[in-house]
Amino acid sequence: MDEVKIGEILQPVGGSEGRRREETVRRKFWRTLRRAAGQIPFAEDLVAGFYCAIDPDTPPRVRGILFAALAYFVMPVDIVPDFLAGFGFTDDVTVLLTALTAVKAHIRPAHRLAARNALMTNEKQRA
């Protein structure tokens, strides 16, 4: 996936499109994460990024980048369709890693702790 395409995907938007992305991510994030868990080796970082995105204290531009990447992750139709076994989340991984790397300074210890707790709770519920 080339840098130009990733840059287009991660471009923060305002107004109704930004609100639509946020609503979509909030509604579909956990279900998509469960479906992709085996293909996303950095689940804790991803969940910490989710908590950073929904944190109202996170700068708007950072939230926009995260919501753009997370919206790409939760939408089933993208460059490589997610239903393709073994390949479906490869483009999502690239977009997510790029976004998380770009905003890593804004992912605070509280976001990481919330991610660990959420993942542990999910594990206990599945057991």
Rank of each mutant, 00 (worst) to 15 (best):
T24P: 00
A43E: 14
F89G: 00
K124N: 12
V47M: 15
D78S: 12
T94V: 09
P81L: 14
A102H: 03
G64Y: 00
L113V: 11
L97D: 10
T24H: 04
P59R: 14
V77A: 06
A36N: 03
F87Y: 15
N122T: 10
V95L: 04
V80N: 04
T101P: 00
F42C: 03
G38S: 05
L96C: 01
R21V: 01
K28R: 11
L84G: 03
R34H: 09
A85P: 00
G49S: 11
A114V: 01
F50W: 04
M75I: 11
L100D: 01
K104F: 02
Q125N: 14
D57P: 13
R108G: 01
I54Q: 15
Q125M: 13
A37V: 03
N122Y: 06
G86H: 11
G86N: 10
A43I: 11
N122I: 09
W30P: 14
A36F: 06
T58R: 00
Q125F: 10
T98M: 09
K28Q: 08
R108C: 01
K124R: 14
H106S: 13
A115L: 04
E123Y: 04
R27E: 12
R35P: 00
I65F: 00
A48K: 04
N122F: 05
A85C: 01
A53R: 12
K124A: 14
M120C: 13
A85D: 06
G86T: 01
F73C: 03
A48M: 08
Q125W: 10
A53I: 07
R27S: 13
D45Q: 15
D45R: 15
F83H: 10
G86M: 07
L100K: 02
L100N: 00
G86D: 09
L113D: 14
R126K: 03
T90L: 07
L96R: 03
T32D: 02
R61Y: 09
D92V: 05
A68N: 09
L113N: 11
D82R: 10
P41H: 11
A71Y: 06
L119H: 02
R63W: 01
M120L: 15
K28Y: 01
G49A: 13
R61C: 12
L46K: 04
K124T: 07
R21N: 02
D57E: 15
T32R: 11
A115R: 03
L66E: 11
A105D: 11
A69N: 05
T90Y: 05
V93H: 07
V62R: 12
A48I: 06
H106F: 08
T98K: 05
P76L: 13
P109C: 05
E22H: 06
A118D: 05
V80F: 06
R31S: 10
T90F: 02
I40E: 09
F83R: 06
E123V: 07
V93F: 04
F42W: 13
P60I: 14
N117V: 08
L113T: 10
L96M: 09
A69Q: 06
D91S: 14
K104Q: 07
R27K: 11
I79Y: 12
G38F: 06
I54K: 14
A68I: 10
D78T: 10
D82Q: 13
I107T: 05
F83A: 02
A102C: 02
Y51F: 06
